[in-house]
Design a protein around this nucleic acid. Structure first.
Lengths: 219, 219, 219, 219
DNA sequence: GATGAATGAGCATTCATTCAT
DNA sequence: CATGAATGAATGCTCATTCAT
């Protein structure tokens, strides 16, 4: 009876910032600021983004920003947390057993889509991670989740006898996962090297994986 | 082919900045500022680096900076030009014909060393590239040189019949080069994933390359 | 004579603030805010106290504050009025005739206790009095009441022949009253100079009053 | 040979604030800011003083202020340090031996003058000391010096047999010094109680010191 | 009565850049 | 060439106060 909903999250600082809004209107405003921040970060990068831009983009006053966030660093962290959650969901889905080449192809495609849809945030994350420890950490963690998932699958493959034994699963996971991640970065963040559709790309990647890592029946 | 690193250096503006100083003292001062800037960039990143920090680090006055550089951005570009030259030298050395696996291993090792010795600048380059077009371009070019060299070697390999024909040399170069680059980045810039010595790493990479890309006589 | 403490209370403005609340709940809320304000003033001083702190401390919303008080200054005045009333009560009690030394001792003790119990408000009063005329005035008045009471007693003593005639009662009252007041301030507000219990202190003060410091040839 | 003048003071923070100016012009500017700050503090008190007021009063830009001081708190401390020095000089002069009444009178007069000439700073010091620990400490120290000097003199008097033995020198010094200090405060800061010229005041104080107030039956 | 969201004036602060010496 | 003082635009941030619900 006594214990109610508000007991749950609600981490606030002395001045009452970072509060989980209590009214519908409040929640809408916080969301509007998050969305606005994303737009501003996309357009200007972190270094050149101004708090006042975000407030304006959200159609609110300057002070309103500070009801919900401590500063621009804080709102970035909030956005990155949301992104992390998505990445986590992706990483939880285990690889399909059976045809590993197909699994790699599917997984790569899905990852590319995820990266593409969040390329704006990825860019800011990378920009800031060079400098700010907290962001660096968030980034490191989501990368680690991704790599672990690959390592897990490689290890299972070694047990099943379809992955070479002379491969270190963790190191190879870093290399292969990094290869994918980096390519996505080149494509969707830097918009560099636009050779090849996602499908063709997934095909090539799975080919390199397959013949570099997996013992195929061709051998 | 046309684009060469040294094009980027020594542009002078009408106020006479960025000129190669006439006197010995002038040259020494400019050098001191460049070195100081590198230290400051390393310690604080680009966004948080102050012109006054660099002057102080170089043991010079605030105003002295502006005799030699237009602003913070300008001195960064000067540093990156120097780095570009090194990368250019690296990319010019063609791969040894003959044993491709050995070639990959050697080349990877050498690249890793280069990256490690310039990790501080690489970090700033990456930070700023997300935001500033000019830096983005410099970075893109040095990456392109590196990738082209790999593509060149793959194409030659295909002619010689030691590289699979179902590989797109350019795309594969991006993927494999990116894999190496990204790993170096993780190691030396982010200081993440410290699994494995450079040697062991080069070994694993060449193994993945070899069995993923090259038709070996082992098959 | 004319000026009495309760004149300062219960002024209402046209918006209806500072009114004595009609309902029981209203009265309770106002009291809660007053108590909360006292806590906040004690903890942060006037300059750093925030209206929102007081509301929070009282467990009420930000807006609620303004139903009862015009601003931070207003709620301080309300608190000081309450304090004034206490001081007024203290000053009304006349000194016991007869043994003056005993009278001084008793009176000093009682004053010290009063000061100690309200040291938090005294501190804020002193802080703000340096700057705000209204508070300065309130303070001046309560001091004046205290001093007048001493002067009254000195004058009576002169008539009775137990107080030196070469003493100016008003000036001496300021000096001696100020001595007491100041010592209380050092003790209870600044928590400085913790030499001596209240009792010992009262003893010393009455001795100085009674006899002075130097041994004169009159003795 | 190597050790030169600049080794001496020169405490600077990371950004180079609080520097002892190196040129004549710089020294003049810093002085101008200090003087301006004093004016502003006098006119508005600490809480309402603005950094921009001080800059304007000194005829300088906003930013110039920050070359020499961290914030308004910092410039206040600088002013108070200067004041402390003066108080220190005052406290170093020992009391004349011989006629103690004359000594008290002279000393009181001198102290009153000092207080009067610095009443503006004293007011701010008192305002801020209620809240800020650092200022509180500075204030406490100058008071302590003053009190110690009196205690010293009382103790010497006890040895010489001209001061009552039943007086605790330290406690009495607090009380008597506090009496003087407090009266000066009432006179020059609060401009209260304007009964009596400095001379008459000094006379009364020395009388109270010397003889006490009540004619006791001991006489 | 009460809530909490929103506003915006008010100030502080930083730092690239210019300038007099 | 070099110095360091001065400038001022650009922003950040706080908090008293009002308002819709």
């Amino acid at each position: 009876m006594a214990t109610e909903a508000q007991d749950l999250v609600t981490v606030q600082d002395e001045v009452g910032r970072d509060v989980e809004p209590k009214t519908r209107k409040g929640r809408r405003s916080k969301r509007a600021l998050l969305d606005a921040a994303r737009v501003v970060f996309r357009e200007r990068g972190f270094a050149h983004a101004r708090v006042s831009d975000m407030a304006a983009e959200a159609g609110m006053s300057n002070g309103a920003f500070y009801r919900y966030f401590k500063d621009k660093h804080d709102i970035l962290m909030a956005l990155l947390s949301e992104l992390s959650e998505e990445m986590y969901e992706f990483s939880r889905v285990p690889w399909q057993p059976g045809d590993p080449k197909h699994s790699v192809r599917e997984s790569t495609l899905r990852y590319m889509e995820l990266y593409r849809d969040n390329a704006d945030l990825m860019r800011v994350e990378i920009e800031v991670a060079q400098t700010e420890l907290t962001v660096h950490e968030v980034w490191r963690e989501s990368r680690a989740m991704f790599f672990k998932r690959i390592a897990r699958s490689l290890r299972r493959g070694q047990k099943e006898g379809i992955v070479r034994k002379d491969i270190d699963p963790d190191l190879a996971a870093s290399l292969l996962g990094g290869m994918t991640e980096h390519y996505a970065y080149l494509q969707y963040v830097l918009k560099d090297e636009p050779q090849g559709s996602p499908k063709r790309l997934a095909e090539q990647i799975s080919r390199i994986w397959a013949n570099g890592v997996y013992l195929t029946d061709e051998e």
